[in-house]
């Protein structure tokens, strides 16, 4: 009888705090999304108005599309390159440790710090990128990377990619070490080519890691905020806006708290798909 309460003894305080700071706020945001609230007077219930407005709001779609672009680039570059680097570095290469450390070192830096440094790199006058291009004779390519709406988003994502790639590489490296060398040796004896070995042996064995990497990458790209806030504040004219930042600026700059909450809810629902995927993967792992 008493034993039944034992786990709750450990869980009581954490759960109370978790309810106050995480669960209740999540639910409250759902409620707020049905209200109009300027953050000062009390929230007015307006039903689905915020959502109607949202689905008619070009900036919302712009931000959503930017999030999607972010996601696609994140899946393409850091994941592929990260895997490739992990494959190379898992071999017996001189200085491998140093190379690994160099590649993942950006991820230890705060996004704000990276955002600041890359803003400087992209600065049209005096910045590293334009200077280098001029120096190697490609002056025609120079531009205001962050002020040009055609390049701004990619410039911001570039900084984020620089931070994320090392993380992916580390995860794959960890996954690769868990593959037993005998499997690989056996395939070598069977005469499989390097590509075959990668495609038919290593990749399937890496599947659990790959799922995690993809989910984490998706979540990272949907959460993107710091880079945008530091580098462009969503500008020029929303060309780099993403949902997380749009939510923030509506809620805390224009004080449409209800509307901001509605954007947060949509963001939450989109991410929930990935979260559910992740949870399923974890449960599967538990049942095994």
């Amino acid at each position: 009888m008493k034993r039944k309460f034992v786990p709750w003894m450990f869980l009581l305080l954490p759960l109370i705090l978790y309810t106050i700071w995480v669960i209740a706020p999540t639910i409250y945001t759902f409620y707020l999304s049905f209200t109009e609230w300027d953050g000062l007077t009390s929230p007015q219930f307006i039903g689905l108005e915020n959502y109607k407005y949202l689905f008619d709001d070009p900036t919302f779609y712009k931000s959503l599309i930017n999030n999607l672009k972010w996601l696609i680039i994140f899946l393409a570059f850091p994941v592929v390159v990260g895997l490739f680097l992990a494959m190379l570095l898992s071999q017996d290469i001189k200085w491998a440790r140093g190379f690994k450390a160099s590649i993942y070192s950006p991820m230890i830096l705060a996004p704000v710090v990276i955002g600041l440094i890359w803003s400087w790199i992209y600065q049209p006058q005096g910045g590293l990128l334009n200077n280098t291009l001029t120096y190697i004779g490609l002056k025609s390519l120079t531009r205001g990377w962050l002020s040009n709406p055609e390049t701004a988003l990619y410039a911001v994502i570039g900084a984020a990619v620089w931070r994320h790639t090392g993380y992916v590489m580390l995860l794959f490296l960890a996954g690769l070490t868990s593959i037993s060398p005998t499997v690989i040796e056996a395939s070598k004896i069977d005469g499989a080519s390097a590509w075959q070995r990668f495609r038919f042996i290593i990749l399937p064995l890496l599947k659990p890691t790959t799922v995690i990497v993809i989910v984490i990458t998706m979540i990272q790209s949907l959460r993107a905020f710091d880079f945008v806030s530091m580098m462009t504040r969503g500008g020029p004219f929303n060309s780099t806006n993403v949902l997380a930042f749009y939510m923030y600026s509506e809620a805390f700059r224009n004080y449409n708290m209800g509307y901001g909450a509605a954007i947060a809810v949509i963001l939450f629902l989109i991410m929930f798909v990935f979260i559910a995927l992740y949870l399923r993967q974890i449960r599967k792992g538990e049942l095994e």
Partner: peptide, 14 residues
């Protein structure tokens, strides 16, 4: 000036 949007007003001063 070119790329005006890349500069704050103070940077524009340069």
């Amino acid at each position: 000036v070119e790329d005006a949007a890349a500069y704050s007003w103070q940077e524009g001063l340069q």
